[in-house]
Computed example of a mutant assay.
Amino acid sequence: MSHVMSVLGPVEGEDLGTVLMHEHLTGGGTSDPVAQAAQRDSIEPTAIAVVEAVKQRGVGTFVDPCTPEIGRDPVLLREVSERTGVNIIVATGFHCGVDHEPDWLETGTEDALTERFVSEIVEGIGDSGVRAGVIKVGTPAGNWHGVWESAVRAAGRAQKETGVAVITHTSGSGGDHQLELLKEGGADPGRVLIGHVDHRHSTPAYLLKLIKQGATIGFDRVGLTVFLPDELRAGLAIGMVRSGHVDRLVISMDSVAVWLGKESPYLKGAPAPMTYLFDDFLPRLREMGLTAEEEEQIFRRTPRRLLCGD
């Protein structure tokens, strides 16, 4: 597999450019196609402006791992990609949360979920004409068992069958449990990105455990200081680089261009979507000694390996 499926079709690894592995055009909205169509015209100008801004900073591709529970709109993503020329990759999978538990929580089976994920990758998402290019796994905070474990195994089975990458949502812990279940389903850990490890609850030992088990880790909440101040986030990232793990690290923001839900404490005071990383955080890493080659690895080579397998 030398390509990844974008909202406009296959993209070769060499054409990805600089990649942001975890960003959102919208969040907190509805997944109802009729309601999405009604609001799309008002959303699109802001979404386009955000994408154009990071394109000016060299971004060629970004992954939007939004799922139906948090308002995935593949048609909007396709239209923005067409207008901007930036590759956008949409996800199948699931995401949990206090206000957005999946509708299959009590009824989904592992076989049915595997079939759903594979169908959205191979055939497309509904009648949108858009195929998913990654699988999102978002599990609850704290201890989780039962149907959640079945759902994660289903994602592992879908990864094995389709070869696409898995991107996860964590709350500073639990990534090792996700990885164990994904591997039970047959997933290749080299194609798994354990997300949101830049958290006050994460320890270096936890990060190294994930890397030792073959996963890549995501410092993908840059600017969201409610989870970890950026000075500590930068220091931890440089520490992972200096420990010889630059090839197992990606950096992104988990930003939202247009928030459609109720006021979120996590987004209060958040910096400008996507651009803050390039205007403020990345210069800080460079001042701390990040080299051009290491930057190339984090933003180009590692995402290409995750997304395309090469």
Rank of each mutant, 00 (worst) to 15 (best):
D280E: 15
V197W: 07
T92D: 03
E69C: 04
A234S: 13
E295C: 00
A37M: 06
D254Q: 01
G9D: 13
F219Q: 01
W104H: 02
P140C: 03
G214P: 00
G244C: 03
G269P: 11
I89H: 01
D176E: 14
R40V: 11
E106L: 12
G133P: 05
L113I: 05
G71R: 02
K212V: 02
T170C: 08
A91S: 15
I211L: 01
E180M: 12
L210D: 12
G175F: 07
D230S: 13
T30W: 13
V51Q: 10
T216W: 02
S42M: 10
A49Y: 01
D220W: 07
A112G: 15
Q56P: 02
V192D: 01
E115C: 13
W144D: 09
D280L: 05
I217V: 15
G29S: 02
V19R: 05
A257Q: 01
H3Y: 15
S6F: 07
H196L: 11
T139L: 03
P273R: 07
G172N: 05
M288D: 06
P229C: 01
G261Y: 08
G175E: 00
E120D: 07
G58S: 10
P10T: 08
Y206R: 08
A292E: 15
E161R: 15
D247H: 11
T203G: 09
V258D: 00
L285H: 13
V258C: 03
V222E: 12
F227D: 12
I125P: 03
F94G: 00
G218C: 05
I217Q: 06
G269V: 10
T67F: 11
G195D: 07
Q213R: 15
T162S: 05
P65E: 09
A91F: 06
D230V: 01
H100R: 14
L224N: 13
L77T: 06
T26M: 02
G156F: 10
D64I: 07
G9M: 08
E180P: 00
G17W: 04
S255N: 01
D310C: 04
L77Q: 14
A215F: 08
L260M: 05
G108V: 09
T291W: 09
E44D: 07
C66Q: 14
K55I: 08
V250Q: 10
S31E: 10
S128F: 01
